[in-house]
Write a protein that binds this DNA or RNA. Structure first.
Lengths: 333, 333
DNA sequence: CATGTTACCGATACCGGTACCGTTATCATG
DNA sequence: CATGATAACGGTACCGGTATCGGTAACATG
């Protein structure tokens, strides 16, 4: 019992392939009665259709390639979720790839994705190496770079400025009276956006004649457990700090748990600050400050950009969509 | 500057399409010098290749379709991550779809995925409606049903018994001396596996002449915030309980935060129990009991099943892979 | 020197659809 | 009744690759 083809459906309905094709696509130029016969035949054969043939023949696919660096914290799954809901009803299909924060792997994945002739491609960040950028340009489809704005986009750009986010957080924490600020980060050699936040933050400190009072770094990827571990180490080494800036919320949440374990009052004694605004943060037993990045919204914006471009047969609005993450969890900001 | 085709590469290298094809695939039957010339031509044209044509012609794809119900808590992203790493190096490519716990949507997504002629398909759970099962059977490719074992699989089956998990947790909690056990759950009309855990749990209670001392349910999907809210409500209504079984760890973590806020000692006064064994759980300021489900491992097992089936040209080992989630966070179990 | 072998390459026929154009039948119109 | 318009359908040529078979040249072999 093999997969049946359009030809078989057509034969069963007593028409030509062409008519069957038209009927199943709901096109005109088909007599109602004939159309019904074809649909019956298709159903009785459980005909499914072959998108490979469809796309090869019609020279268009409904594919949107999406490349994200990771799946291990919730941020990218949420972005993906936003993309798929944004694509819903448009007939587009998102295809995902995970690069593990590895630029070589990212290049290979993008190449592989492009070979499926997608109608658009969404990649994370603006820091692709030149070779990857060349491939993206050559693909001659809408390219959307997501999450980050600090750099030169290939084409479309949707995201937020991580530099601004780091700067704003530093300003807010200083305004809240914090002076001895430490930094806790993970996998900074991979997570370029965290680096951007950190250095913008440091720049604000420097402008006030300050610097990070201490640092704890690790090569592992961010996690609550790692945040807890590094924070424990940090407060042992440098007990007199009054604030910790983390590379993200996972780390900060772990930091909170470490503080609770060591009887450190948050936020009165030490203020903890992260990035992302994970749902987690507003259920925590003590507040942590964070920049609330609109992950779903960015995904949906990217999706809308694509559906628009497909519909209008080209660009209509601006090529860059800017989000500004508000700082929450700091009481009066 | 259009996308170049194999034909153009061949022309530039001064050979036929066929030879170019062979050269780029690294096949034999090509003189080393000719191969080099073709590769040069391909590179100079930034040739990418058209997988649509490749797959249509060769009648095989490197696609593995994966359908999961959600992306909003970390469990499915972790499973996906396991699948992609398990597929790594095999040349297979995972394609994801999200069904939002909606069986109709799941059917449509599966149909759509099948139209891409994937080499295998992974779906979540065993509770697909008949029509969906029929489609899966007709696809005539390896079908893997993931996460759950309680039911009749279409083909391959990788997962754990949620009935057993619920039962074991009930037994463990009773053995720990808990008597007044409440239940807190979310979206039970959608999350069939949570229902299986709950009813197996309830059955154990019933066998001891017990029943849930209280219940808090909600239609929303699970989240830490929801767990916190429902738990707050629960302990207000029924302060004398000594244990809460949650539909999963997100809810339980929220429950913990609620308890902390109300000065309830965990686990001495109330034991909290969830399901999944999220990484989060072992950094929490107080222990919560949970069944540690091997999410990555299940994904990888499914992937390996597929790569094996592709390599051996058929089935080799058993069609069912059983995982047994250990209970952690209960001190002496 | 005739006859394999082997290495390398090309022609042709698909794969399963759609685009495009042409054909036929039917019917209204002048 | 010839003509044109329109509706419904079919034929053919692709889309960009690969499978398959066959051909040619170079070389070894008896």
């Amino acid at each position: 019992m093999r997969r049946s083809t359009l030809e078989e459906v057509a034969a069963l309905a007593g028409v030509s392939k062409m008519t069957a094709s038209r009927a199943l696509r709901g096109a005109s130029d088909v007599a109602p009665e004939t159309g019904e016969r074809v649909r019956q035949a298709a159903k009785s054969l459980s005909y499914v259709g072959n998108r490979l043939a469809l796309s090869l023949s019609s020279q268009r696919t409904n594919l949107v390639a999406v490349v994200v660096p990771s799946m291990s914290n919730t941020v990218f799954p949420e972005v993906l979720s936003g993309i798929t809901t944004g694509l819903e009803g448009s007939g587009m299909q998102a295809v995902f790839g995970i690069s593990d924060y590895d630029t070589d792997k990212e290049r290979d994945i993008i190449r592989d994705m492009l070979s499926w002739q997608p109608s658009a491609i969404i990649v994370t960040g603006l820091d692709q190496p030149e070779e990857t950028v060349r491939m993206l340009k050559l693909a001659d489809i809408p390219v959307i770079q997501l999450m980050d704005l600090d750099g030169t986009p290939v084409d479309f750009n949707v995201g937020l400025s991580h530099g601004d986010a780091g700067r704003d957080m530093a300003v807010a924490l200083l305004a809240a009276g914090r002076k001895k600020i430490a930094y806790v980060g993970s996998a900074l050699e991979k997570d370029l956006r965290a680096v951007k936040r950190k250095s913008a933050f440091a720049k604000v400190l420097a402008a006030q004649g300050l610097a990070f009072a201490a640092e704890q770094l690790d090569d592992d990827f961010s996690s609550i457990a790692l945040g807890k571990r590094l924070t424990t180490r940090l407060i042992a080494a440098k007990p007199d700090i009054d604030c910790i800036y983390y590379s993200n919320d996972d780390m900060a949440a772990g930091g909170l748990f470490a503080c609770m374990e060591h009887g450190i009052a948050v936020p009165s004694q030490i203020v903890l600050a992260g990035f992302n605004g994970l749902d987690l943060t507003d259920s925590l037993p003590a507040p942590i400050a964070t920049s609330k990045s609109p992950r779903r919204a960015m995904g949906e914006a990217a999706a809308r950009l694509i559906t628009d471009a497909m519909a209008n047969g080209g660009v209509s609005g601006p090529k860059t969509i800017v989000f500004k993450p508000p700082i929450i969890g700091l009481g009066v900001a």
